[in-house]
Design a protein around this nucleic acid. Structure first.
Length: 153
DNA sequence: GCCAACGTTGGC
DNA sequence: GCCAACGTTGGC
């Protein structure tokens, strides 16, 4: 069992959007090799934080669960899609996605400011200088500490 | 809107 | 293989 962090701009896809879905949601559109490789390392049952970025109050707002291991990201094949990548036409395995299901929405999101104020979390990749990856690994200790900050049992 | 940091691209 | 230019990300 591993832990991850999924980053999304709430203006395009929020945790509330995920909650409204009846079925698990493909986490599509990732076009960064490191982030792709993290998805390829995911296994069913892995858990992840849902992080809202590029918004008024960046924060971890809840949790998701990986419910399907990686498979080809078909949005790369769609010329109408914003994440279309013609290189995938000859290589459909180029980009990957996993399916995630909603797990929990925190009554009190753990804001980026709060994460920064928590010394035990100073090593978090999310807090690293210049971090831009949309998928990040989270250690078991970080997972436990952050759930504590969110007052989740 | 600004700017720093980063990944990717492409010329050489 | 180097490296400058460019586009993107994301906090502020």
């Amino acid at each position: 069992m591993a832990y991850w962090l999924f980053k999304s701009e709430p203006s395009s896809f929020s945790l509330e959007d995920l909650m409204a879905r009846a079925a698990p949601e493909p986490w599509s559109g990732v076009r960064n090799y490191q982030a792709r490789n993290f998805m390829r390392a995911m296994r069913v049952g892995d858990l992840g934080f849902f992080y809202h970025s590029s918004c008024a109050t960046p924060a971890i707002v809840g949790e998701v669960e990986v419910v399907r291991p990686y498979y080809p990201d078909t949005t790369a094949l769609d010329p109408e899609d914003h994440h279309y990548d013609p290189r995938a036409l000859a290589n459909p395995e180029l980009w990957s996605m996993v399916d995630v299901a909603f797990r929990e929405r925190y009554a009190r999101p753990v804001t980026l400011a709060r994460l920064k104020d928590c010394p035990p979390l100073s090593g978090m990749r999310l807090l690293a200088r210049g971090n831009r990856l949309s998928i990040l690994p989270v250690t078991e200790e970080e997972w436990r500490i952050i759930r504590g900050l969110a007052s989740v049992a």
